[in-house]
Nucleic acid binder design. Structure first.
Lengths: 207, 207
DNA sequence: CCTACCGATCGGTAGG
DNA sequence: CCTACCGATCGGTAGG
């Protein structure tokens, strides 16, 4: 039990370091120092640096899901949930859920040229995430909220690109408007694909 | 003269390594090994690792400009040049001008959380690049090819986001359609802004 | 451009 | 969880 608590606090710290300095910039010595543990004591929790990195990715995945994906599931299927995902993602960057911006955007670019288990783990998380966006798009089409002509994979690609572009402009360029720019682009794109039924419009006007 | 040639060949190799493993993953020992030089012989060209990294960024910038920006200047001002920039960027990823995908996308995400001269150098290159896109948009508006209502900074943001999203999907996810998806999104967006029809204006005014 | 070094830090191990 | 250690590699220097 206590070992598990220690392990969790190590990983929370590891995720924060990695989001700023990269997963390769994460070193056991520094992590132990900052947590006032011995290197070997910390090391014993994982067995190898790669296992530590894999556990760090998994911890980051959980934090991401709790912060962005799970809250969005409270919104109604279809257009509202798709919008909740988008607003949630931008809010997650603004809130600084990871101190260095989106952990997975950084990890994706860090490992896209390095084959191995770390790259595979990151790709698996990202595949699942893009798939979640695609599913939200498909649901919006099924509910009759969104034009069926658009391929879910295409729209998911575009939405994710605007997320990454927002993270880039916000974190590197310090563009305070970056998150609003992304939202504006997403809204314009979704609006152009939206199917507004008369009943729905009436309900909106009355509200 | 000969020293300069050696320096250039060191930097070309350094750029390739850094595009795959990151600017921090670039080490003097490995670089010297692969170039069959002594560490200290290579080191003497730069004086410090940071100077090597800064020179690597500058070398990558030159390669990028020669590959993407300068060819696009041959296209006519306005819409054609803006399209040439977009096609050129996607072709540059497809051709593998840098073996690990876009050097500056990777460097941006690697250093956005690490203040210092390297981050500043990368930010300066990216600011200039985004500015080039903005200028191309503004010219297209001046030439009467593009709706003047769109803010150049907004459209440049969107185009760059689609570039980064394409690089991500292509490099990490291995999505062969990624570059076409980005082009499709860019074309759809530009097409929607291309000519201001009376109908469109009416709808806008009413809002 | 080289050989021969330096102290610091890396991931990891032995033994408790 | 610790101390005490290992070989390898890091950026960098001295001297030629």
């Amino acid at each position: 039990m206590k070992g598990e608590r220690t392990r969790q606090s190590i990983l929370e710290h590891a995720v924060n370091i990695a989001s700023l300095e990269g997963l390769e910039g994460l070193t056991i010595g520094r992590l132990a120092d900052e947590l006032k543990m011995s290197k070997s004591g910390l090391f014993a929790h994982f067995g190898s640096k790669e296992e530590l990195q894999l556990a760090t990715i998994e911890s980051a995945r959980e934090r991401f899901i709790e912060s962005v994906f799970r809250p969005a599931l409270k919104a109604e299927r279809g257009y509202p949930r798709l919008m909740a995902i988008c607003r949630g993602w931008l809010a997650y960057v603004k809130k600084g859920v990871f101190p260095g911006g989106c952990f997975f955007a950084a990890a994706s670019f860090e490992f896209d040229g390095r084959p191995g288990p770390l790259r595979d783990a990151i790709a698996t998380v990202m595949d699942a995430w893009i798939d979640s966006i695609e599913k939200a798009v498909a649901m919006a089409q099924e509910e009759g909220h969104l034009d069926r002509d658009i391929e879910p994979a295409q729209l998911a690609f575009e939405i994710n690109a605007l997320f990454f572009g927002a993270n880039f402009s916000y974190q590197l360029r310090g563009d305070r408007k970056a998150l609003e720019r992304a939202m504006e682009a997403i809204e314009a794109r979704l609006e152009s694909l939206r199917i507004v039924t008369p009943t729905r419009q009436l309900r909106r006007v009355r509200r």
